[in-house]
């Protein structure tokens, strides 16, 4: 394995700096939200991680199709990397959302469309890794992984729409006409700066982690092949 490319090293450092700036903007620069207080500040990281994780999951579904057509293990490694990083980010999203919901909605969890879909999505991709763990042959592991990521990636948005459709027919306890009661709020200009910067920062951090994870996958592949060669 060659040493880290210089671009990646730079990206590592840039990601750390961006994370620092984004934290500063979220915790200090943005004004305190009047109704909810300081807890609203988790919103910036919440959205940042959610956006990148969803992009990662969509990317993984695309890699599924590409792998099933091209049958090149490279695409499988891209997919695993995308799903793993997204899974970590989405975990942060869910936990932050739950922490925010406690003072805002007075409950850690409600079964509303987004929360439920988030939990189901997280479970789908955990199942994805459990499936892969049970298979030794790399080609079969890649094929099954691609099939499951495709099925899961199609099912998650349908789950979301299904829950939303049925919950709009039967009104939910939370979220009447009043947006404030729902925990919604109007963003000031400073909040918007922190918001968009968090989106940008997490996109860069995601790319950086993703790149590192792909390199790890490549290394793993190399070790596995050498292992085969030595044992033969």
């Amino acid at each position: 394995m060659q040493d880290k490319p210089i671009t990646l090293k730079v990206l590592d450092i840039v990601s750390l700096i961006l994370l620092g700036i984004s934290t500063y903007l979220a915790l200090v620069f943005a004004p305190t939200e009047l109704v909810m207080g300081d807890v609203q500040r988790v919103f910036y990281f919440h959205i940042g991680t959610a956006w990148t994780a969803l992009m990662g999951f969509i990317l993984a579904a695309v890699f599924s199709v590409v792998y099933l057509i091209k049958k090149d293990l490279k695409w499988d490694r891209y997919q695993v990397a995308a799903i793993e990083v997204s899974l970590v980010f989405f975990f942060i999203t869910i936990v932050l959302g739950s922490i925010w919901a406690r003072p805002a909605w007075n409950t850690w969890w409600t079964w509303d469309p987004r929360l439920t879909t988030a939990a189901v999505t997280e479970l789908i991709y955990i199942a994805y890794f459990m499936l892969r763990q049970g298979i030794d042959d790399p080609d079969r592991r890649a094929r099954f992984g691609a099939v499951y990521a495709l099925v899961g990636g199609l099912s998650a948005p349908i789950t979301f729409f299904a829950i939303r459709l049925f919950r709009t027919i039967h009104p939910v306890v939370i979220g009447g006409a009043n947006a404030e009661a729902e925990g919604g709020f109007a963003m000031t200009a400073d909040m918007r700066v922190a918001f968009f910067f968090a989106l940008f920062a997490f996109t860069v951090i995601f790319v950086d982690l993703y790149w590192n994870r792909i390199r790890l996958g490549n290394l793993q592949e190399k070790v596995e092949q050498l292992k085969l060669k030595v044992t033969l």
Binding site: V120, Q133, G134, F144, S155, T159
Partner: peptide, 25 residues
């Protein structure tokens, strides 16, 4: 897929339930 894995006795519900939630719902 699940019968071709090492954990075939326990894997199917774990794979199946999260993706059939729209059907059950």
């Amino acid at each position: 897929m699940s019968v071709q894995t090492r954990t075939r006795d326990i894997l199917l519900p774990i794979l199946l339930f999260p993706v059939v939630i729209p059907v059950l719902l």
